[in-house]
Design a protein around this nucleic acid. Structure first.
Length: 425
RNA sequence: GGAGGGGUGGCUGAGUGGUUGAAAGCGGCGGUCUUGAAAACCGUUGAGCGUUUGCGCGUUCCGGGGGUUCGAAUCCCUCCCCCUCCGCCA
């Protein structure tokens, strides 16, 4: 959500920012809505003033038992009521219209973000490891092992679900545990266990609503299934004033995520790359207005460290203006090398959102002794998507005989096992 | 699921139709006193929005929304949340 005052201060800069994202200019439209809103407010307030004055006099008349005068005054303001109600309704509508329009606008890219239309214009900022050629895709490896079962999942739930068995199920769990342990032990994140069902306000706060409702699952009694723990972790500070001394707040969670993948029909239909339900370790930071960009770099490094310790080749991409998410001002994607696909695939996305979500959540902070509050700045990032990491491990660690070597850092989480598939080979 | 009790300012807690944005206490801030601090005493202390060069003025807000009324923290409807008892249950 943007501050209408910022738009008023420099409408051209606002439109220029939107243009970078391929969104057409609309500052003028917003200012017109705001003007209408303010006129409506002034009209309603004027009527309210008159009503209040009259009511006060009526009260005074009644106190001195002057019923005649009281009645005279009551007759006098009787006509006001209708106008007042209309004016208040007009004020509400004018305000709603402006809020609705503002809520649909994406955040502005930070200075220096590469300008472009789509992922073609993303910029590689670094890389790690050496990509190798591979022969097998992860689902071939998993099915050969007899531990990855899409048919069983389809029977239960349809497409875009998977059943993992035996050591692969354990590997999945090991990955999640390894990741979250790393972040809480070494990077100062607080582990958090969260609901995966939330209400409208929370999803609105992080920007998935109102625009992207079709990407989410909704229960019959009105809950949303969280598409990422970004929603819950970020909303932890909603509608409150955090003491600035407590910042930065760093939260990590290992949760299930649920996405309808409404717009992805036909894409990544095979395998575990794109599922309706997947596990992810999410990293969220709540910071003050000055720390956002440094925290973005830090968080990206936290995510990268997971890949490094798993010895998975990856590259870091800075997203261009056209490829960034709705709330983001600056985003890095980490893309892991998948030998089976002979391609880099996104495994983490780390974004700095400025105060865009803070304003939507009415989440503020205040420096000790100061009166003025500011909206918190927020960051979120995957550290990492567990399902896709499992895919990467399989394709990068598969052996000639179809077994899969367990990455060293995961062995403590696997009962010491060095290999998957030996017993079944 | 059934029955009941509650949601008031940073906190505790009064307030059931008329200058109530809201008593009192705590906390915070300023001052007096003190070498300094504490204690004591005095004063002060909510937020959003609109308007204004500024002082200010106006308006809204007592969980959210709607309604009754000339006037609502106070009455009505509805939703949300918390608590207690019973039932059920991982």
């Amino acid at each position: 959500m943007h501050d209408i005052n910022d738009i008023r201060k420099d409408p051209d800069a606002f439109d220029a920012g939107l243009a970078k994202r391929g969104v057409s200019a609309c500052a003028n439209q917003m200012l017109t809505l705001d003007d209408k809103r303010r006129v409506a407010i002034a009209e309603a307030q004027d009527l309210q003033t008159r009503r209040n004055e009259a009511s006060k006099k009526i009260g005074q008349a009644k106190r001195r038992d002057d019923e005649v005068e009281a009645q005279r005054l009551m007759d006098e303001v009787a006509g006001l009521k209708d106008d007042l109600q209309k004016a208040e309704e007009a004020e509400r509508m004018a305000n709603d219209k402006l809020m609705e329009a503002l809520a649909a606008l994406p955040n502005l890219p930070l200075e220096g973000v590469p300008i472009g239309e789509d992922e073609e214009a993303n910029v590689e900022v670094r890389s790690f490891g050496t990509p190798r050629e591979g022969k097998a895709e992860h689902f071939e490896i998993g099915e050969t092992l007899g531990m990855m079962d899409f048919e069983a999942a389809a029977a239960l739930s349809g497409s875009r679900f998977v059943v993992l068995r035996d050591e692969l199920a354990r590997l999945d769990r090991a990955l999640g545990n390894f990741m979250i342990d790393l972040h809480i032990n070494e990077f100062d994140y607080r582990e958090t266990a969260l609901p995966v069902l939330v209400r409208d306000d929370a999803v609105y706060g992080t920007g998935q609503l109102p625009k992207f409702a079709e990407d989410l699952f909704r229960t019959e009694n009105g809950y949303w299934l969280t598409p990422t723990a970004e929603v819950t972790l970020t909303n932890l500070v909603r509608e409150q004033i955090t003491d600035a001394a407590e910042l930065p707040l760093r939260f990590a969670a290992l949760t299930q995520c649920f996405r309808s993948e409404a717009g992805a029909a036909g894409r990544d239909t095979r395998g575990m790359i794109r599922q309706h339900q997947f596990t992810k370790v999410e990293l969220v930071s709540i910071v003050d207005a000055d720390s956002g960009e440094a925290e973005l770099e830090r968080k990206t490094q936290c995510a990268e460290e997971v890949l490094k310790r798993l010895d998975l080749p990856y590259r870091g991409m800075q997203l261009c203006t056209g490829d960034m998410g709705f709330c983001a001002r600056k985003t890095y994607d980490l893309e892991v090398w998948l030998p089976g696909q002979n391609a880099y695939r996104e495994i983490s996305s780390v974004s700095y959102c400025g105060d865009f979500q803070g304003r939507r959540m009415n989440a503020r902070f205040r420096h000790e002794g100061e009166k003025q509050t500011q909206f918190v700045h927020t960051l979120n990032g995957s550290g990492l998507a567990v399902g896709r990491t499992l895919v990467a491990v399989l394709e990068n660690y598969v052996n000639e005989d179809g077994t899969v070597t367990v990455p060293e850092v995961l062995r403590p989480y696997m009962g010491g096992a060095e290999k998957i598939g030996d017993a079944h080979a």
